[in-house]
Amino acid sequence: MFSLTQAIGVSGMAKRELAPFIIAFVIAEMFYKLGSFALECLAFLVTWYLLSYVFDGLVRRGRG
């Protein structure tokens, strides 16, 4: 996370990751009731990663 922030800056990171983060947070809050903080945190991070991957693909497709 620190390396990414250093590479693209705080505003660049916010533009790139804010939407996937918020959507993943809402999904995790609404649906992930796993009974363990560690499992819920891991599920949130995986969801955020996958949404970030999808958003990145959509942005690249829009540019091309």
Score class of each variant (00 low, 15 high):
T5Y: 11
R63V: 04
K33F: 05
E40R: 07
M13D: 06
Y49W: 12
S3E: 15
F2G: 13
Y32E: 00
Y53F: 09
V46W: 12
F21G: 04
L4H: 11
M1H: 15
L18H: 02
R16Q: 03
Q6E: 14
I27P: 03
I22L: 14
S52D: 13
M1E: 14
I23R: 00
L39H: 07
V10C: 07
V54C: 08
G57L: 05
I22K: 02
R60Q: 13
E17V: 11
W48K: 08
L51S: 02
R16V: 06
L42T: 06
I27H: 08
S52R: 10
A28P: 02
Q6Y: 07
V26L: 15
D56C: 12
V59A: 06
T5F: 12
A38E: 14
A28E: 02
K33W: 02
Y32L: 08
R61L: 06
V54K: 09
K33S: 01
G9Q: 14
L50N: 05
F31D: 02
S36T: 01
V10G: 06
G12Y: 10
T47M: 13
L58G: 00
L51N: 04
G9H: 14
A24T: 04
L39F: 11
A14Y: 10
Q6W: 06
S11C: 15
A14C: 10
P20D: 09
M13Q: 11
D56S: 14
W48V: 05
S3L: 14
L58K: 00
L45A: 04
I27R: 03
W48A: 10
L18G: 03
S36D: 10
V54M: 07
R60T: 08
I27F: 15
G64L: 09
F55S: 01
V54Y: 11
G57F: 01
L51W: 04
A24V: 06
G35E: 06
L51Y: 04
F25V: 05
F25H: 01
